[in-house]
Design a protein around this nucleic acid. Structure first.
Lengths: 186, 186
DNA sequence: TTAACCATGTAATCCGTTACATGATTCA
DNA sequence: TGAATCATGTAACGGATTACATGGTTAA
């Protein structure tokens, strides 16, 4: 029971179609959760059936019609209930970290390569998050925006995503330099 | 196909029973993955059947017998294969972050409470990781240990866990102070 | 004597991923 | 002409959580 609330939270500020939601959740632009398009269409159908969201058909020329969803009163109440319940603790679950755990028993050159690839990916996400944050706060300073802006929730979650990717990047760089130096000695 | 490799990686340096593994994975002491005891017993049975680990019965007085597992040649080869394959990207998936995404539409007092609780939890894990790292490197400095120590994999993954929890803590504290100040103005 | 710890499992359910399926439009 | 984008779904499978099940030992 977790994706439903992520979807509700994503639909709070704007009406979105399944396709639009999917793009956000798939690319991880919605840095607070991740899901495949298929899962979203299923979840949207369920949420609508339960009355937590409503969809309206939008007819388009030259491209397929789409359905835009927004959160209902019942949906908002469900979110309110969710935010009062105990969140489960969050854990790292990352293939790459498992690989590094085995570092002393596998080919270091492979690991260095993998860590390098992840670093590239992390840098791209950091750039993306920087741009998103700037777009949200406009010309205001961050401190000013967080004090007086109208929507700070998405900004705060984006800050978490940014810090997470910075953590990834630093750890990759550190690990590569450690493994490189040990290769030289060996 | 992800837990199996975490289990293999965990068994590289020491023979462990299902129960011991479960404690590590459950508390998140094994900071590179997380799993429930039930899942581990199933996975251990599977891995043994496939010949990637072997178990030996250890008879004990005054407490139930246990089975200690270690990685076989085939298991090591499987890990080697795994570290050469593409890891799937890692995403944040955290109830608390979803709650903060909805910050502008739900009760801020509740959020502040939740963030405070998570901060306490994060501090405890930071302490734990600090102690684990110290135990691993002994009297050596970190830099020295990473250059010349015999097992750096577990140390590096622990560093990732530490940085992750520090990121959690900082973000919780920052978010609390932002929400507090906005409450005052409202 | 009650709770916590040691020790191992099965079964049901739910959540998430991968594969399958369709079809129009726009840009290179 | 082929790839990317827009747009929405179903089905099969596999991974993860929760509930159920058992039973001895140790410390408060």
């Amino acid at each position: 029971m977790a994706l439903r609330h992520a979807v509700l939270a994503a639909l709070l500020d704007e009406e979105l179609s399944g396709y639009q939601l999917a793009k956000a959740f798939d690319l991880g632009v919605a840095n607070f959760w991740h899901a495949q398009p298929q899962q979203l269409y299923v979840e949207l159908a369920r949420l609508e059936k339960e009355g937590l969201i409503t969809g309206r058909e939008v007819v388009q020329d030259n491209r397929p019609n789409k359905r835009l969803f927004r959160v209902t009163e019942a949906g908002l109440a469900e979110l309110e209930r969710f935010t009062s319940s105990a969140p489960r603790p969050s854990f790292i679950r990352d293939d790459l970290v498992v690989m590094v755990q085995a570092a002393d028993h596998v080919d270091p050159a492979e690991l260095i390569r993998q860590l390098g690839e992840r670093a590239v990916f992390a840098r791209a996400k950091i750039d993306l998050f920087d741009r998103l944050l700037h777009a949200m706060r406009g010309e205001r300073s961050e401190a000013d925006f967080l004090r007086t802006g109208t929507r700070v929730g998405p900004y705060l979650t984006c800050l978490r995503g940014l810090a997470f990717e910075r953590g990834n990047l630093e750890w990759c760089e550190r690990s590569v330099s450690v493994l490189r130096e040990r290769e030289h000695r060996a």
